[in-house]
Write a protein that binds this DNA or RNA. Structure first.
Lengths: 130, 130
DNA sequence: GTATTTGCAAACGTTTTGCGGCTAC
DNA sequence: GTAGCCGCAAAACGTTTGCAAATAC
């Protein structure tokens, strides 16, 4: 693995990801980081987000539909629930058995690095039946 | 629903999606469409892809990781395998039991409209162990 | 006849990159 | 001292949009 240094910028960005509950866009991380380091640049935020993802300390979460990437600190594997009403994205556990699936038998799959499961629906607050 | 017209361009694009095995980017659809309609423009390809998605005749498929959108004709529900090596996106069946999962018990989920499962890995051709 | 769609090109928002100076080690 | 990082600004990228002309119906 490539040699890397600790910098204030990198530390602040990781702290922001770790202390936040929702998933942040790069721009949102940038705005939060500027409160601690007013001189930080958006390019540095992107460089560090990519770096942290490469190190496995963060993950990129894309909304399935268009728009910009969101980032979260790495945690135990989980799925994402997207509410069509309020647009909230919540972490939810993987359903029983999914992570044990043997993909190698399915078509020409030789290795699996990552599972992305997005459940799109409505939360209790947004459901018309509520 | 909004009134719409049939055009040669729209028909060609839908044919391309329906006859494709892997999932195509807008640029790839454009290149294929130019063989039938040399004068077609990339803007028209995008407009029609979005139109077809809005009509439910096509779907946008994004690998959670990066890059551009891919498109497929609407079909039976299935998961997607993304190869990090060759960037190919293939349909694979949902694993046993996933579609029967009772999400209502998981957090505040009141209804589920769609499941997006992406398996990111390496295909046999791209695997270093091959 | 007219509302929709087209081709073109310019604009857009997000992300990456080249560069010279700065900093952690 | 130096490899790695920063801030800045410009470029790259995928995608959308405004417009006048063409087309489907």
């Amino acid at each position: 693995m490539k040699k890397s240094r600790h910098t204030r910028q990198r530390g602040v960005i990781l702290d922001i990801l770790r202390s936040d509950v929702v998933h942040l866009t790069a721009e949102e991380v940038y705005q939060k980081a500027r409160k601690a380091l007013p001189g930080i640049s958006l390019g540095t935020v992107y460089r560090n987000l990519n770096f942290l993802c490469a190190q496995g300390l963060a993950r990129e979460v894309r909304n399935g539909e268009a728009g910009c990437a969101r980032f979260e600190a790495a945690r135990d594997p989980h799925a994402h629930f997207h509410c069509r009403g309020c647009q909230v994205v919540r972490d939810i556990p993987f359903p029983e058995g999914l992570r044990e699936t043997r993909w190698e038998g399915v078509g020409p799959i030789a290795a699996v690095f990552r599972l992305d499961l997005h459940v799109v629906g409505e939360c209790a607050d947004c459901s018309p039946t509520a």
